[in-house]
Design a binder for these strands. Structure first.
Length: 156
DNA sequence: GCCAACGTTGGC
DNA sequence: GCCAACGTTGGC
């Protein structure tokens, strides 16, 4: 059984369209311990709601899947990278990431107001801790968001 | 673009 | 270990 997550990206930084074009990507640059811990808990095959923040309205826009379990974020060791962290070391990395692949884009985005208006989604982390960029999602919540989007996953 | 809410840092 | 100061996120 997969677990379910939600990952945020600013639409003008790395959108679901960018992920569709690339096929898969390294989720680098996360510098929050709670978000990192969530990525370290991910397994290959886990499913991800892809969320665009800082657009109007912010919305869940599609689905991705974890394709590689957590490993050290290489950008933390690169002094020329904006995510460089001088306090991290290769022996004891601070920051970890996963690789995700594109699954699909919703024809109907599920906006934050829609999520907030849905009783069954009242306990989503998205509603209660808006700052966390990688968060766990219950299966029932995941299924409900997909239903609201009118999106069907390919059976595997 | 503003600013509230939150997380992190560092002085004590 | 507390907490003020600071930086960042993200909704609006």
């Amino acid at each position: 059984m997969p677990n379910y997550w939600l990952m945020k990206s600013e639409a003008d930084v790395y959108s679901i369209q960018d992920l569709e074009r690339d096929g898969r990507t390294m989720w680098d640059g996360v510098r929050n311990y709670q978000a990192r811990n969530n990525m370290r808990a991910m397994k290959v095959g886990d499913l991800v709601l892809y969320y665009h923040s800082r657009q109007t309205p912010s919305a869940v826009v599609g689905v991705a899947r974890v394709v590689r379990e957590s490993y050290p974020d290489p950008t933390q060791f690169d002094a020329t990278n904006k995510y460089f962290d001088a306090k991290s070391s290769e022996d004891d990395p601070r920051w970890w990431l996963v690789d995700i692949e594109y699954v699909g884009t919703f024809e109907t985005q599920v906006g934050l107001p829609d999520v907030k208006g849905e009783k069954a989604l009242a306990d989503m982390v998205l509603v209660n801790n808006s700052r966390l960029s990688v968060q766990p999602v219950q299966k029932a919540e995941f299924d409900r968001v997909l239903a609201m989007a009118g999106f069907r996953l390919q059976e595997s």
